[in-house]
Amino acid sequence: MSDATLASQFARISRRRTAILMAGLAALLLSVTLDLMAGPADLGLADIARGLVDPAGMEPRFRVILWSVRLPDALIALGVGAALGLAGIEIQTVLNNPLASPYTLGIASAATFGAALTIVLAPAIPWLPAAAALPAMALAFALGAGGVVLLVTAALGGVRETVVLFGIAMLFLCEAATALLMYLANAEAVQQIVFWTIGSLTKAGWVELALVSLVFALVFPFSLRNVWALTLLRGGEEHARAIGVDVARLRRHAILRVSVLTAFAVCFVGSIGFVGLLGPHIARLVIGEDHRFLVPASALGGALLLSVASWLSKSLLPGVIIPVGILTAMAGVPFFVLLIMLGRRAGR
């Protein structure tokens, strides 16, 4: 084997991984197209294409369906899925835990508590605009929980086990607080809280989409800046430190990014399970551990999963839109088991 062989082999592998990312983007395009076509209104591919290029030329009723319902739903699926996928890979790597997900730190539970609190309190405060207050409170509580986890992490030196334990404690605390609210609330409020906790893309519109997209666009470059350090961290914390990586700082910054991504992802659509766990696992299986590819592939994987789930949620039962959170939870478990089996077969 000549000296240049390994380097050229690595370059070949990198080119193949780039091609996989491109194929993933193509799959995403296909999935969004199917998602846009799904629904009771009979809109074919040509109608969708024409409506996107020339909205004014479209029949008003179809224009409303495409531009006010289907397009924001399809795109928020991409935004939320990508945010959860990106948050998932960062948290799995910095906690060195394949079972970690964006929800491990208790951020989604805090968002749920914030939403539940608003639902219970809103009728008592007449001037509170419930429609805007609900996501705002969910966001505030989610960011607050992320901030607390971050402060504790910093205070305790960024030790991995501490982060996980504190995150889980936060999760149980918020769930207990939500349960208490539900116990005290009236039946209508309980129904609203339950409905909020079942993630659904139909809750969001263009403004929410713009916010989620903006947050993702702001955070993603910072994630990409750390891809070599994240790759090195997969070899073990001590080795990364020996090379000069400030692991505690890397972990704190990643937790900050995960907190912001998760908070914005769940505050508008509710908790959508398994996307932040499965997206990175699928990406890892397909593309490997080189985080230059794994980080974008995880975001892509999350977006693809949620986009497919969005399409299926409108296609499985004619005339019925199943909340996408139910679909991801139901399909997530067997899919996750399958991934574990595939991973074991591949020796990973």
Binding site: G235, G288, E289
Partner: peptide, 10 residues
């Protein structure tokens, strides 16, 4: 540590 990372990548 054992992972799906390769020696070259590390």
């Amino acid at each position: 540590q054992p992972s799906s990372l390769t020696a070259y990548e590390l």
